[in-house]
Amino acid sequence: MDINLITNILYMTIITGTPILFVALGELVCEKSGVLNLGQEGMMLMGAVFGFIVAYHTESLLLGFTFAMIAGVLMSLLFGVISMHLNANQVATGLALTIFGSGLSAFVGIDYIGKGLEGLSKSNIPLLSDIPVLGKILFSHDILVYISIMLAAVLYYFFKNTRAGLIVKAVGESPESSEAIGLPVLKVRYLAILFGGAMAGLAGAYLSLVITPLWADNMTAGRGWIALALVVFASWRVERAIIGAYLFGFMSIMHLILQGFGVSISSNLLATLPYVVTIVVLVFLSKNQARIKLFAPVSLGKPFHSNR
């Protein structure tokens, strides 16, 4: 096999895995605090559309990414108010967020379909990017790829070594006990939800400003849902989420690769691959319920009514 081809495949794998990694990290923090937000897809779409619109008008990608995160945060705030303050079912609220986000983003983005802009440029890391093969695969990406990995490292440290990380985990395991020892359960959960929103917004903008710099209805194509499966796959561990994200990234470009090899299967059928793989992975993971019980935050998805 051609070394250039392999290089390109791995290079693309990292790029397509990055938005999934962002969403998965956001959702991971959220789920660690005991909140199951199924609205990732909706928040991503809002991030994608607002990121694109702002970047299109201001010609500033930085502003685009910033507003994408703000859009994600606002959406997650809506989820927070309804699921935390009004005690609504988290599953139903998350689904509503996705339906709402997909409707609102299609509505807002109606005038921007078919318009393009210049996406985020690659920033080669000096010296390192000159290494043959590895330099191209690892060190000649855009800045957000590096940020996503740094974020993962920070979160790993956060959960492993900081008091705040421990508090988030405690709130996710037992909100009642956490409240009894004086931890601000709702505040912690809100922060986790908002962080998840920001990350989903950023991931959406990564799609509409980096991978394919344009806006199309429902352009996230289920990546938010795949990220939810990924958090289970990673058994709520940051380091495994990185591996998982790139694995799913690889799966989603698989059809391009196979076509490159001249495999003559319909591109529509090949496009089902990431979804099929997600189901297969879920089946293998959920077969072992004991393992999931061991790793999942105990209070995940359960409503909590503060007594204060």
């Binding site: 199924l38 599953v91 194509a221 289920g222 849902w225 939810l228 499966a229 289970v232 319909s266 529509n268 059928l269 496009a271 089902t272 979804y275 099929v276 997600t278 189901i279 879920l282 089946v283 959920s286 077969k287 319920q289």
Partner: peptide
Amino acid sequence: LKTHFNTNEILSTIMLNYISLNILLFAVH
């Protein structure tokens, strides 16, 4: 998948939505 492997039906049905759409597209094309 739910009764034999305890697979979460929310995620599996959503994935199946995307799969069926692509199969439909494959069939009409």
